[in-house]
């Protein structure tokens, strides 16, 4: 089916991204993606105002609850109000490129997958700093082991979901661990998945805003504890 017949929505969680969010949104609008929902996760800067300035819908969390919760808000809101065919999750900090979206949705349009995950490791074209690469690879090994799945990049915020995946996937962690939740839900619900190579643009801004290394260890422990207690 053609892309123009499909209702494609983009959900962007954002926390204190006032400096870059406008640019990210404009790049999407210039690529003709108009259905965008930003979830402002309790930012204390001008994120919400910047989003409204470019005419994009913004839902505001009263307090900061983490990226997982923000994604849930956006995904649930789109599902409840717009009956979407495809929902894209996209980062607010300018790490993702709008031109990768087409590659991401193609397997969904061809009905070959329910969820498509962007991978920065399929083609080595992202300038990933050495230490970040090491941590990410450890995260991939860990998540693959827990979810009994084989992926090359498990913590990439660029994904495309069809309405089936959107309805089935339940995000339980409110923080960054939601990436592992999504992977777990793929195996749990027998969703068809596909990875496509995408480029992640690392800037000093995104690296400074990104995950601190200690957080990855904390995230791993949280996931293990959650597994043990549930």
């Amino acid at each position: 089916m053609k892309k123009r017949n499909k209702k494609i929505y983009i959900v962007i969680p954002a926390f204190n991204e006032g400096a870059v969010i406008k640019k990210t949104l404009q790049s999407l609008q210039n690529s003709n993606y108009k259905n965008i929902v930003v979830v402002d996760d309790g930012s204390v800067d001008n994120t919400a105002r910047e989003v409204e300035a470019v005419g994009v819908e913004v839902i505001t969390h009263l307090i900061n609850r983490g990226q997982g919760a923000a994604l849930r808000t956006g995904m649930e809101y789109i599902l409840e109000n717009y009956s979407p065919d495809i929902v894209i999750t996209f980062d607010s900090d300018g790490q993702h490129r709008p031109q990768d979206i087409q590659k991401l949705i193609q397997p969904l349009l061809n009905n070959e997958a329910d969820i498509v995950l962007g991978s920065r490791f399929l083609k080595n074209n992202s300038n990933i700093p050495f230490f970040r690469r090491f941590i990410l690879k450890a995260g991939v090994l860990f998540t693959n082991f827990i979810a009994r799945i084989k992926l090359t990049d498990t913590h990439n915020g660029l994904r495309a979901l069809n309405s089936k995946a959107l309805q089935k996937i339940k995000i339980t962690h409110r923080g960054m661990e939601h990436a592992s939740d999504i992977i777990n839900e793929i195996t749990k619900n027998n969703l068809r998945y596909r990875e496509v190579p995408v480029k992640i643009v690392y800037t000093n801004y995104s690296l400074a805003k990104g995950q601190a290394t200690g957080n990855f260890i904390k995230m791993g422990l949280k996931i293990i504890l959650h597994k043990l207690l549930n």
Partner: peptide, 18 residues
């Protein structure tokens, strides 16, 4: 409590937005 706070935040933000 943390989970209930998250639910509260998510649901209230959606309702306020609507």
């Amino acid at each position: 409590l943390d989970k209930r706070l998250t639910e509260l935040t998510i649901n209230s933000s959606k309702e306020i937005h609507k």
